[in-house]
């Protein structure tokens, strides 16, 4: 496999032979020298070779890669060579040997996006905000292409599910951290269309979590949690859920674990659903004539989870997971 680009490159340099034998020899020697000495960037990647860069300390990444591999095989007419490496072993040169690099998670994105590459990079298992802050802001994507399959749900979808699950909800409370800016503009826009008033409070000091949350809960019908490590961590979630429960207000979560812990419901995408969409994007890329990535996208496949025990305890009448899933999918399909 390593030899292949060299051959290709040699073939490309053949027209220079017709100028003169001398020139040709010089050119050939120079080219070979260039190939070996300076410039891996002069290499061309194979048509269909995929490099997956993972954080091997995360079991999620291994699971994702395993699923992705079977999903790529499932897609017809896609035969590509797949190589997976740990981000600590990654060098730009390796990406240049592949027609597409798939970066998984924040750590890989943070390192890869610091370099200018001349092959496209697809980011997956990456929150939209991290894509904006790590990838787009570094402006290394201008020459080559970058795209992403985000891990987080579009705000609109979460709000639509909120309206479906709690039709009587009028005010949704939001707590955000000091260093984190959720897309409040978009949130307010979508919520207005759905007749939901957003009450937003910023937590300036972590010690005031309970009291600040209390202020929000007092005036809200539910707490809409938006992923924010400054607010929601495995430690604070306990406090947030207990406080909300004390106020008899439900928490709208964003992950399966959150629902299991005591949030009323959540819409999220499973690793399987995310890898499936990533495989679809890779397939589109390999099939396209000019090897172009589709634009960054939110998860198309999603799962709705409901904690019926919490619903019962809070005396909330909520439809079953299956029904909500069905209704939310119908809305999404309508919009497409």
């Amino acid at each position: 496999m390593d030899n292949q680009p060299i051959k290709n490159n040699t073939l490309i340099s053949i027209p220079s032979l017709s100028v003169s034998i001398f020139c040709a020899r010089v050119c050939l020697i120079t080219t070979i020298l260039l190939i070996f000495m300076i410039s891996p960037s002069a290499l061309h990647a194979s048509d269909k070779s995929l490099l997956i860069v993972i954080n091997s300390k995360q079991s999620l990444h291994h699971l994702f890669v395993a699923q992705l591999k079977t999903q790529l095989i499932d897609v017809k007419n896609t035969r590509c060579e797949i190589e997976a490496i740990d981000i600590d072993d990654w060098k730009p040169e390796i990406s240049h040997h592949h027609s597409l690099t798939l970066s998984l998670g924040n750590r890989a994105a943070n390192i890869i996006s610091q370099r200018k590459l001349n092959q496209p990079v697809l980011y997956s298992l990456l929150p939209s905000l991290a894509y904006k802050k790590l990838v787009l802001s570094r402006k290394n994507c201008e020459d080559t292409q970058c795209s992403a399959v985000f891990i987080d749900q579009p705000l609109k979808r979460t709000l639509q599910l909120t309206k479906l699950s709690l039709p009587n909800l009028k005010v949704a409370g939001i707590l955000s951290g000091r260093h984190h800016n959720n897309d409040m503009k978009n949130l307010k826009y979508f919520s207005k269309n759905l007749d939901i008033i957003i009450e937003h409070e910023k937590l300036m000091n972590a010690d005031n979590l309970v009291s600040t949350l209390g202020e929000v809960l007092k005036i809200s019908d539910a707490l809409l949690s938006l992923p924010d490590p400054g607010i929601y961590s495995s430690r604070t979630v306990q406090n947030i859920l207990l406080t909300a429960y004390r106020y008899r207000k439900p928490v709208i979560g964003y992950s399966k674990a959150f629902v299991k812990a005591g949030a009323l419901f959540a819409v999220y995408s499973t690793p399987f659903q995310l890898s499936q969409q990533t495989a679809e994007v890779i397939n589109v890329f390999f099939k396209s004539q000019d090897n172009r990535l589709p634009s960054p996208q939110y998860p198309r496949h999603f799962t709705v989870s409901v904690n019926s025990m919490v619903a019962r305890s809070l005396n909330i009448n909520i439809e079953t997971e299956d029904k909500l899933q069905e209704k939310l999918e119908a809305i999404q399909n309508e919009e497409l």
Binding site: L104, A130, L134, I151, P229
Partner: peptide, 11 residues
């Protein structure tokens, strides 16, 4: 910064 672990970490 928000990362993939925030979505899949156990709570």
């Amino acid at each position: 910064l928000l990362s993939e672990t925030d979505f899949f970490a156990d709570i």
